[in-house]
Amino acid sequence: MPGVFVLLEHDRGVFAPACEEALTAARTLGAAINEEVTAIAIGVTGSDLLPLCSAQGVSRVLALNDPLISDYSPELWGQAIAEVHEAKQPSLVMAVGTDKGNEVLAQGSARLNLPFVANCVSLERQEAWVATRLQWGGSLLEDVTVEASSIFASFGHHSVTPERVSLDGQPSIETLELSLDPNLARSLVQDRVKMSEGATLSTASVVVSGGRGVGSAEGFAPLEQLAELLSGKVGCSRAVTNNGWRSHSDQVGQTGTRIAPDLYVACGISGAIQHWVGAMAAKNILAINTDPEANMVTKAQYAVIADLHEVIPALIAEVKLRREGQSKS
């Protein structure tokens, strides 16, 4: 009876793309351990969950009733799932390991003093729970066993391929009344500020990035020009942000942004593992580096072994020339 409870993340009613991953992972696990899967969402009604759950073959929805959780608060949301756990005694409470997915599971498990295994890529129940999880932001894997009858676990974001299985009929909705401590409203989100519209570094289709080899803040001007010509964004390595040449919001890597463009142009970047882990989802990588042995070069599909300060201006000229040719013909 215990069951698998899966938390679905949303922002004021708009479900995160990660929810399909969460439901696929929950359904697969539920089938493997032969326990029912129930979807929970905090701060929306049960019927808001029906379309997603129907499309994902999840037949049970638990609606949580309390006006305190209508907007995001790490503590209240964590307390809410802790109360679900107390009421339902599930084998597993899970979510996708986004920033908030991990935060809420950590808040919930901490309140119950239960283990929380973050960013799993696989999870099984044998005599104990057996998981493989991401360390170093994904550069290393750790196999762990957890001796506990009930655990919290997140699945690494993008480590599950969503699969649709449609459901016969409608999912059932059960409602749980909570008794949340109003004092926890101390960490409710107060306001939201939008900084940019459209593509960001993480969603851009082209990223032109520079590393220590660029040499200075001014050295980025040609990279900016190239990025603009290709409707892309400028990225950089940590050596660059540490030198104050660019803002940290441009940093690609483990402690920066994960990118997945169609083309990544890495100029004067050695390809340290912490940088690579942020760039490896790029479909094509072009490395421009004076060192043919640089990790970035040996891991890229395409490379130019030369000084970036000569290659980038020549490339800008060539792109402009071809564009002009196109507009004339």
């Binding site: 057996v130 994904g138 762990v144 066993t145 957890v146 070069v297 599909q301 490379a303 030369a306 201006p313």
Partner: peptide, 26 residues
């Protein structure tokens, strides 16, 4: 949580195509 082992994720080996050694690679 008991660690059983650490290991590196599998990596595809890529064949790098060198497009050139100077600005003419543009």
């Amino acid at each position: 949580q008991q660690r059983v082992r650490l290991h590196r994720p599998e990596e595809e080996t890529v064949e790098t195509t060198i497009l050139g050694n100077d600005a003419t690679a543009a």
